[in-house]
Amino acid sequence: MLRPLFQALFAASAVVLTGCAGLPAAEMSLPASIAAERAESVQGLGAGRNGSFSLSAETGTFSRGLDRVDLFSVVNWSSASTRYSLVLADGSRTEAACSGKAVEVTWKVIAANAKPFSFECEWRGSRSAQLKMNAPVVSMTMKAERSGQFSMGGTTLEVESVHEVRGSSLPLEAPIGYVFRHDGKVVGAIELNGLTPRLWRPASGTALREPVTMAALALALLWDPSA
């Protein structure tokens, strides 16, 4: 199952939480430090395997996929791949190559992660960077949590999945988005609910704008192999 699985899950959650399909879809719960900031829409991602996108002055192209191998309905190997090329606001270009994987073992009604979710990206071109994300080896909750780091030059961002929905005490299992922290302070977020992700990022011209943008696009394009 591809990106539509996420959309179906989020849509169903929104209906349960609001009690009416005609009301707005569920929105990610944002930290107070950025909740009042204006979000930017990532146009063009949709649910396709290939395409082009735009984000204010930045534009790009992408390709992505998700493969699953099911062995006797007991062992399930999943792997995801993503590539995108981004033309930054100053006209320079960087390209990302990402891969994600997970292995799940199911016995009767019990499912366990034999190899928890992992996701890695590398950027080449005018900007060089790395992103590494993992699920916890042991989780005490039902949430499919992910966390990791994005590194570019001397800048490091802490990345963490968000499962809380605004106005509800009921968290979602799959991430509805991610937040980005620098030196412990939230500096950005990406909401993945629906066909058009929404991005909160630092102001144009600031040092953290490009790192947040690059990491957020990689996560927005991911077809999560654990979903």
Score class of each variant (00 low, 15 high):
residue 15 V to W: 15
residue 13 S to I: 14
residue 8 A to L: 08
residue 210 E to F: 12
residue 40 E to V: 14
residue 43 Q to D: 11
residue 51 G to I: 05
residue 51 G to N: 02
residue 24 P to C: 01
residue 113 N to A: 15
residue 120 E to S: 13
residue 10 F to T: 07
residue 135 A to Q: 03
residue 193 N to V: 14
residue 40 E to M: 09
residue 174 A to W: 11
residue 39 A to L: 01
residue 211 P to I: 11
residue 41 S to G: 07
residue 25 A to K: 14
residue 125 G to R: 04
residue 184 G to M: 10
residue 71 L to F: 07
residue 88 L to N: 04
residue 108 K to R: 12
residue 94 T to Q: 03
residue 160 E to R: 03
residue 214 M to A: 08
residue 205 G to T: 04
residue 221 L to C: 10
residue 36 A to D: 08
residue 29 S to C: 12
residue 200 W to I: 05
residue 51 G to Y: 08
residue 209 R to S: 07
residue 58 E to G: 10
residue 40 E to I: 10
residue 196 T to N: 02
residue 30 L to P: 11
residue 35 A to I: 06
residue 137 V to L: 01
residue 151 S to N: 11
residue 196 T to R: 02
residue 179 V to E: 00
residue 160 E to H: 02
residue 37 E to T: 14
residue 4 P to A: 00
residue 82 T to I: 09
residue 140 M to A: 12
residue 55 L to T: 01
residue 212 V to I: 14
residue 219 L to N: 02
residue 105 V to G: 06
residue 197 P to T: 13
residue 157 L to E: 00
residue 37 E to K: 15
residue 190 I to D: 00
residue 34 I to L: 10
residue 1 M to N: 06
residue 100 G to P: 06
residue 122 E to C: 15
residue 64 R to K: 07
residue 88 L to P: 03
residue 211 P to T: 11
residue 217 L to C: 04
residue 120 E to L: 14
residue 56 S to H: 11
residue 30 L to H: 08
residue 159 V to Q: 02
